[in-house]
Amino acid sequence: MIWLETLIQGILLGGLYALFAAGLSLVFGIMRLVNLAHGDLIVVGAYMILIIVSILGINPFVATFIAAPGMFALGWLLQRFVLNRTLGDDILPPLLVTFGLSIALQNALLEGFSADSQRINAGALETASIPVGSLSIGIMPLLTFATAILVIFGLNQIIFRTALGRAFRATSDDPITASLMGIRPSSVFAIVTGLAMLVAIIAALYLGMRASFDPSIGPVRLIYAFEAVIIGGLGSLWGTLLGGIIIGVAQTFGAAINPEWQILAGHLAFLAVLLLRPRGLLPRAVD
């Protein structure tokens, strides 16, 4: 029975990792851009929510809605004026620019908010749980997982059902032909990153409500997120969810055996998948 509980916890934890990873997967899938600052941008989002909650004294979910346009704008500007300049065949410029951004953001947050741990207060929701048979499942993990499914479903609807999504796919496949059809790749990419930041602020909400955070935790979240994206396969958002679940399950089982092995077990699961299926489990696009 304890193993079943561990398994369920792991799957639900995977939902959180999928939320971290969904924005990354979107950006990576459409423009092959690796954003090494994604984890730090999620942490920026968490501080934005924290500020709004503490100033206005409102519910964190409402605060997320208020922060969302700002986050979209941040992503749009970042892509439009910085990251678009780095796109091309060479993978060095985007890697190095976002790496620089990661270091700069971490230290800007450190300067602004100190190294103290913070937490977004979610009230009674933090400890609430529902009994299922003889198990009890936390509302918060359940809500996280449901949100992850909703976010990925929504993103897929946008990508495959709307004119905007068609522009995403066309630009991803062939930016030159797409621009002949009246699409401006640079504007499309800016919207993609804006959208990724909307997902990031949702991830930030759950990051902040579920555990304490400080300016330095971005890179570790980035690694989990990236593992989920790579396990899932390039360009597949459902694959990213599957990847998140695999990391989550490996971590909770590792922790059940020995608490020190939690992170290690997740990494080893990632390396094992990489060894067997280097292109991921559900690859949609060719690298």
Partner: peptide, 19 residues
């Protein structure tokens, strides 16, 4: 942290304007 922030920004600037 100001020092590291500066370093990050210099790195970005060099990569963008003088690769």
């Amino acid at each position: 942290s100001w020092y590291l922030m500066t370093l990050g920004v210099i790195g970005i600037a060099v990569m963008l304007f003088a690769p």
